[in-house]
Structures are given as C-alpha cells and as structure tokens.
Simulated scan of single mutants.
Amino acid sequence: METIETSDASLRGQAEIWQHMFSFADSMALKCAVELRIADIINSHGGSITLSQIASSIGSSSPNISYLSRVMRLLVRRKIFAANHDSRGGETLYGLTHSSRWLLRDSELSLAPMILMENHPWLMAPWHCFSQCVKEGGIAFKVAHGKEIWDFALQNPEFNKLFNDGGGIGEMLSEIVKSYPHIKGINFDLPHVIATAPKYDGISHVEGDMFKAAPQADAVIMKWILHDWSDEDCVKILRNCKEAIPEKTGKVIIVDVVLRPDGSGIFDETGLVFDLLMLAHTTGGRERTEQEWKKLLEEGGFPRYNIINIPAFPFIIEAFPQ
C-alpha cells in the first residue's frame, strides 16, 4: 500500500511539474484571444455563437478554424470561455464567462491592454534573465535590453504606447473626476508620458519629475507607482508628496499590493507573482508586506496609515503626515 501511495504522489508531482512547465501556454492562448478580440465578437452578438461565426468576424479572408478550435478548447478548459455542446450533433456554442468579460476592449475594467503588454516579447525577455541576475546581480530588464525600462520607453515610441495603454495616462483620475465633478485633477508624469495623454474634463496634465517635486494638491493618489521603486527611491517620492499637500488635512492615497505570503485570499498568489514582475521589469522595485509598508511610510514622513481592504486587486493605503 505504501508503494502505491508513494507512486501516486510521484505521479502527482510529475503532473504538477508538467503543468508549471507549460503554464506559459495559458498566457499565449489568452493573448491570442485578446488579439483576435474573441470576447468582443461574442459580446457583440448578444449571446453564445458558433466557432464559424467567431472565425467569420476576426478580420481574415481565410481563417484557420482548426487553429482557432484548439485555442478555444484550452480556454474553455481554463473557464475563460464557456462551451455548450449540442446533444443532437450541432455546432458547439461559445459564450462569455465572468473571466472573459475582463477581456472586453471597451469595458472600463478591461485587462486586455495589460495582457498584450505583459505578454509582449519585450517584456517577456527579462524573465529569461533571472538565473543570470541571481548569479551575477544586475537588473533583469537592463540585462535583456541594455537599458532600464524607463529609458527604453523614452527612446521607443511603440513600447511607450504599449506601456501607456496598460495605464499611466490619467484614466483612473478621469474616472474619479467623472464620479465627483467637484474634484479637479492633476495628472503628473514625465514629458514623454504626458505627450500621449488624452484630454479629460476636469483634469490638467502637468509634466515633471516626482523625484524632484510634486504639484501642490489637497491629496496625492498613486496607483502602481511605489512598487516600481526601491525603498530609498520611495522615501524620496513620499517626502516630495508630503511637501505638496497640506500638513494637517492632506493625505497620500496609495493603490498597490500588500503582500500576504501565507494568505489565502483570492489575490494573495497574484501578489507574489507581481513581486517577480517587479524583478523582471523594474530597478529595485518590489511588492511589500504591511510591515514593510509601515517602515517605508514612516521614513517618508507618514507615521499614520490605514489599509482599506476592497473586493478588488490591489489594496488602498491611506497615509497621513500627522
């Protein structure tokens, strides 16, 4: 009996290694679905449709339906799409799921631009440099491309657009102002980012460098900013934010990951993956536990903070200078 149990455990271990080895296949199938706008095609029909109907809408005069069916088979297995098989032998009907609705391009909560960005060869290349960086040190993105990500974006308009489509041009601020019109927003970023930012009602775009100074405001909100930088750099940013807000009534709102390595929340594993994402793409960036955030905020001049757990990814941290 012990031999059988050991054998079963070994087989499970082997199966897990195979699964991890080819987990990139899920990402590539997902990227394919986004590039072909499959979720949008299904959504535009108002209900489940056949593979032939999907193929006829992808913008090709000679689509390879065999390719498409095999990609869709995996995505259905992963519950990205739903498949309803006709018991009478008719064509299978494909529909949306709670997951595929996050792939809709025109949705306010779409993850489609980020999928295209994170799975682009430019951003995948640094992941292949991890072992070299463990042995020799260095910055993975720079090892892969010869320059750090911000310089790469500055010198490469195509990459800059890809990066900004994933965020950074004032979309979050525009939604806040849209919901609360009495708020006037300032979208503050580097010149090459501001140059591509669209016009939004109630928002002014300001060029600058957060390491030098920040515009005066009642509050500063930073989404997925501080995780890009080392502790030393974050302290500089936070101190500049402190100088920009009222001492008694001002606050900094940080939208970022709070790592819980042993947590069982639905996004806790995603947080660990994001920490490796910071290794791949940033210079000293990292995701942080609550204790690491506490230390960082105190050094940056914010001794009081409040973590707001929201039913979303990531978290919200309110930090106060008094």
Results as ranks from 00 to 15, higher is better:
A153F: 14
L154R: 15
L154A: 15
L154E: 12
L154D: 13
Q155E: 15
Q155P: 00
Q155L: 10
P157C: 02
E158N: 03
E158Y: 04
E158S: 10
F159G: 06
F159H: 01
N160F: 03
K161T: 12
K161C: 02
K161H: 10
K161Y: 07
L162W: 03
N164R: 04
D165Y: 09
D165W: 00
D165E: 11
G166V: 00
G166E: 00
G166S: 13
G167P: 01
G167A: 05
G168E: 01
G168H: 01
G168N: 02
I169C: 09
I169V: 10
E171C: 03
E171P: 00
E171W: 07
M172R: 04
M172E: 05
L173A: 11
L173G: 14
S174K: 03
E175H: 11
I176K: 01
I176M: 15
I176A: 05
V177F: 11
V177Q: 07
V177S: 07
K178L: 10
K178S: 13
K178N: 07
Y180P: 00
P181R: 04
H182N: 11
H182F: 12
H182G: 11
H182I: 12
H182D: 14
H182R: 10
I183F: 14
G185F: 08
N187A: 11
N187F: 05
F188E: 06
